[in-house]
């Protein structure tokens, strides 16, 4: 079946075998996006986080059929390497990246927080990121990066 997704402001047509396929697989295997990442497939680690109509969702368990006409935003939709979004820039400025694999989820989750709470407390940041895993242990810098982004916003 044909599915049309709106991703980062562009319409993309996909051939889909299974409408229950989670969004992540369509974004990665179908559209060759690599902001959203496969980490657990079980909504346990947050690496796959994208926004659907501005809300952070775990795309590894979010069925394609639930997206409907929703607007999907991925990390690629925020900014580019050359022109990063202020939140992306804050992660650079705090050197918050080690291996970088969790960073998609951290940024997309933090973006959803800052959209609703522009000046969060440290506790609010940690609560928002509590379901996102990082194995390199760069947690403290991630929190600092979100704080910095909130400051410059």
């Amino acid at each position: 079946m044909k599915v049309t997704l709106t991703v980062n402001g562009r319409a993309a047509d996909l051939d889909v075998d299974d409408p229950d396929m989670p969004l992540l697989y369509a974004l990665r295997d179908g559209l060759a996006l690599r902001g959203p990442r496969f980490g657990c497939g079980l909504a346990q680690c947050g690496a796959c986080t994208v926004h659907v109509d501005g809300k952070a969702v775990r795309s590894c368990v979010y069925p394609l059929r639930s997206v409907g006409k929703g607007k999907v935003t991925t990390l690629e939709g925020l900014g580019t390497s050359a022109h990063p979004h202020p939140l992306q820039q804050a992660f650079i400025d705090e050197q918050a990246v080690q291996c970088g694999y969790c960073i998609n989820g951290m940024i997309m989750q933090a973006k959803a927080l800052l959209d609703s709470t522009p000046h969060p407390t440290e506790g609010e940041i940690k609560d928002a990121l509590a379901r996102n895993l990082c194995r390199c242990g760069t947690h403290l810098r991630i929190v600092r990066a979100v704080k910095r982004a909130a400051r410059v916003a």
């Binding site: 690599r34 902001g35 959203p36 990390l75 992306q88 050197q95 990246v97 970088g100 960073i103």
Partner: peptide, 21 residues
């Protein structure tokens, strides 16, 4: 000196093993 891969990683441009298409 900042991480050479930082700007790509935060923008979703990092290429990991799982990303090959």
């Amino acid at each position: 000196v900042r991480l050479v891969d930082g700007p790509d990683i935060v923008a979703g441009r990092g290429m990991y093993g799982i990303d090959t298409v």
